[in-house]
């Protein structure tokens, strides 16, 4: 008996790790190939068959990309838009999350569900009416306009995630602060906020990644004030292969680094809103 049990255990382990490795390869292989191309000479990108090891390392390609017209401006634009998105979605979303976490009110389940459903709505359908409205409001081709759309896209995520974070801060801590002389706001600022801060930071970083990677709305709503993904996309058809590799790499890296930093939180982020 014990031997069959342990054989089943080993089999389970092997298939688990085998599956995990396959999944990891599925994601990592393209990343590796992009990085390889981005750090080879420009000519090397055209080689066939491609070498799987970095034979001729060079920052020539990356330099070319970074110095291309419009790239640095678009990076600056992307950062501005992402920061506006973080600020806007946290200022609007965190109070919503707090309300979902702390209060019982009519329609609470409906709101939670509605937030999730809103994520299913395709941006593509919205884009033309949005572009028209933005033209009328004089928001077209402005970073504010893009940031507004990104805030709208990030908001459901931020509300649900911050609700999970606030649920994790016990209510009695807030109550005991109130008996010790705090009003509700002071109790929030002195007790809840410090305890929620790591989680909120993780949510902010994830919001940054959402905005940094968003390409569709950014492309449609801007003309000259491109964000980085919009800039790369708009020139995609006329640009050489090595430019595309370098651009891809350049866009992936910040997202990768940030996700790596907050990986511990990501698993908890979609915490449930306990009633």
């Amino acid at each position: 008996m014990p031997s069959t049990l342990s054989r089943r255990y080993i089999l389970g382990r092997v298939s688990l790790y085998g599956g995990a490795i396959l999944l990891a390869l599925w994601t990592l292989a393209p990343l590796y190939l992009i990085a390889l191309a981005a750090f080879s000479t420009r000519q090397a990108t055209f080689q066939w068959p491609k070498p799987f090891l970095p034979t001729d390392f060079s920052i020539d390609t990356m330099q070319f990309f970074v110095n291309s017209r419009g790239v640095l401006d678009s990076v600056r634009n992307s950062i501005i838009v992402a920061l506006l998105t973080i600020a806007g979605s946290l200022v609007l979303g965190a109070p919503g999350g707090y309300a979902l976490a702390r209060f019982r009110f009519r329609g609470k389940e409906g709101i939670s569900l509605g937030l999730l459903i809103s994520k299913m709505f395709p941006t593509a359908i919205l884009s033309i009416p949005l572009a028209v409205t933005f033209l009328q409001l004089d928001l077209y081709d402005s970073l504010w306009g893009v940031a507004l759309v990104h805030i709208a896209m990030a908001l459901p995520f931020v509300i649900i995630v911050t609700a999970g974070i606030f649920v994790g801060v016990p209510r009695d801590l807030e109550e005991v602060a109130q008996t010790l002389g705090c009003n509700r706001l002071q109790a929030f600022l002195r007790v809840v906020l410090p305890l929620a801060l790591p989680g909120l930071a993780a949510a902010a970083i994830f919001t940054f990644v959402i905005s940094w990677n968003e390409v569709f709305a950014a492309t449609i709503l801007t003309l000259r004030n491109r964000t980085l993904p919009a800039q790369v996309l708009s020139g995609l058809n006329d640009s050489p292969l090595y430019y595309r590799y370098a651009g891809g790499f350049f866009m992936i890296v910040p997202a990768l680094i940030f996700i790596f930093l907050i990986r511990r939180y990501l698993l908890n982020l979609w915490g449930n809103i306990v009633r």
Binding site: D172, E175, V176
Partner: peptide, 8 residues
């Protein structure tokens, strides 16, 4: 408080 509610 019964649950202590000490600020962590």
């Amino acid at each position: 408080f019964q649950s202590y509610a000490v600020f962590p």
